[in-house]
């Protein structure tokens, strides 16, 4: 039972001091959660602290790989628009990678 930080993390440090288990560490290319230490805050807080302050939708996943903050849930940007932006960014990235 542990949460996970994935590549959309922007390294803003907001989660790091909140973790009751010091399970979050600065790392490259982004912060990570040491799984052995993570308790999902059970017993300490009602809500997982990292996921409660994280400003980036989809950056923190639960033990099933589901985002705790799904697209649209934090910014209020409608889900369809948020998803199409993610898609656009992916296409742009793929193009940039394919370019000589």
């Amino acid at each position: 039972m542990a949460l996970e930080i994935v590549e959309s993390c922007v390294n803003c440090w907001a989660c790091e001091p909140l973790c009751p288990n010091q399970a979050i560490v600065e790392a490259k290319p982004h912060f990570k959660i040491i799984a052995d230490r993570c308790t999902e805050c059970i017993g300490d807080h009602d809500d997982a602290q990292c996921a409660s302050i994280c400003p980036i939708e989809g950056a923190i996943l639960d033990e099933y790989g589901e985002p705790l903050n799904p697209p649209g849930s934090l910014t209020g940007i409608p889900m369809e628009l948020a998803l199409s932006l993610i898609e656009k960014a992916r296409i742009a990235e793929a193009r940039a990678a394919a370019a000589p």
């Binding site: 922007v10 803003c12 440090w13 907001a14 302050i53 400003p55 980036i56 910014t75 209020g76």
Partner: peptide
Amino acid sequence: PACNIQCHYCNRK
């Protein structure tokens, strides 16, 4: 770097 609120005119990149 950390913030404790979200503003609609801000994007955290």
